[in-house]
């Protein structure tokens, strides 16, 4: 997919890499949170572009859905807080620290580059083994085969990461998540149009994942985003908190573990899938995982904001009592 080659390297690649590097610098160097966050969101978008350039569309979808979607929402939602004033550091000291950091960074980078330069450009000769095995996996998309068959233990554990992050976050949120009571007309429209569209998109990504890029993670991330939007637009059942939501979250993980046990019972090996029912099992488990991930991500978002929501609600409740002070 060379666009315009320039001394072996595609010019578009160079541009995207340069842009990624610049946004990375901006994201870490801008002192104000707003600027840094936006730079980071753009960094994510450009990364997705880069993933497209390295022939990793699955990763690009995930990056767009998670980096731009849910993680973006998490970061942006935190922006409304007043950025705490940094204790006034001595300017010269700050400069000195930055200089030392830059010097150490340069040394580290040089060392790392030296090591990397020793890597051969030959592709890994073990990779094709995985591609060959796809036939025996029950699905035709290699990455789905890796994620849900060859290395499904990693996937199971990773779902566990998301699930327990949500469990932990839910435990740390102070109050019950409150419904947004007055979303306003624009949001109502958004709720009606965007949310179903996103749910549909999630379903598409899920089903498509068995034969082409897409799958449970991407679908789950989109579903999570849909739930967050639904919540912010005042859709009641999207209030992903409390016992019911947790049940949904852990259900996917438990089902996956159960599948592992079924594999043990059926084939004598944990998590093994018999080719005759592998496709059905993968699709079923992916569906449950999509719901699990989606709800878990929405829980993380709502838990993060719950304290501020509660504080705002308290203030609103206090305001009349104060007699409408100017």
């Amino acid at each position: 997919m060379t666009v315009i080659a320039f001394s072996d390297v595609d010019v578009l690649d160079m541009l995207v890499v340069a842009a990624v590097a610049v946004t990375a610098i901006l994201a870490i160097a801008i002192p104000r949170r707003v600027g840094a966050t936006i730079a980071f969101l753009v960094f994510g978008l450009l990364l997705a572009l880069l993933w497209a350039r390295v022939a990793a569309p699955d990763v690009a979808i995930a990056e767009a859905a998670l980096g731009g979607g849910v993680a973006g929402a998490l970061l942006v939602d935190a922006l409304h807080r007043r950025q705490p004033a940094q204790p006034n550091r001595d300017r010269r000291r700050a400069v000195a620290i930055t200089a030392v950091g830059a010097a150490l960074g340069a040394v580290t980078f040089a060392a790392l580059a030296t090591v990397l330069s020793r890597l051969t450009a030959e592709p890994a000769d073990l990779g094709p083994l995985a591609l060959e095995a796809v036939e025996r996996s029950g699905v035709s998309h290699p990455i789905t085969a890796v994620l849900l068959n060859f290395r499904n233990l990693d996937t199971l554990l990773e779902i566990a990461v998301v699930v327990f992050a949500a469990v932990g976050a839910a435990a740390l949120s102070r109050d019950r998540i409150r419904t947004v009571t007055d979303p306003g007309p624009v949001r109502r429209v958004i709720a009606v149009i965007i949310v179903p569209a996103l749910v549909l998109l999630a379903a598409w990504l899920l089903v498509a994942g068995t034969s082409e890029p897409g799958g449970a993670f991407q679908a789950g991330a989109v579903l999570g985003a849909a739930l967050i939007i639904a919540h912010l637009c005042g859709v009641r059942p999207a209030r992903a908190a409390g016992g019911r939501a947790l049940v949904l979250v852990v259900a996917g993980l438990l089902a996956f573990i159960l599948l592992g046990g079924i594999g043990l019972a059926a084939t004598g090996t944990w998590l093994a899938l018999d080719l005759s029912w592998a496709f059905a099992a993968i699709l079923a488990i992916e569906t449950l995982l999509t719901v699990s991930i989606g709800v878990a991500l929405a829980m993380l978002f709502l838990a993060a904001g719950s304290r501020d929501d509660a504080a705002a609600a308290d203030r609103a409740a206090d305001a009349p009592a104060l007699g409408g002070a100017p």
């Binding site: 979808i61 767009a64 859905a65 929402a73 965007i194 569209a197 598409w204 890029p213 985003a225 939007i229």
Partner: peptide, 13 residues
């Protein structure tokens, strides 16, 4: 698909 996701999720932000 990436494009659709990017558009869809720009809304959330």
């Amino acid at each position: 698909d990436v494009a659709i996701v990017v558009v869809g999720l720009a809304t959330i932000v």
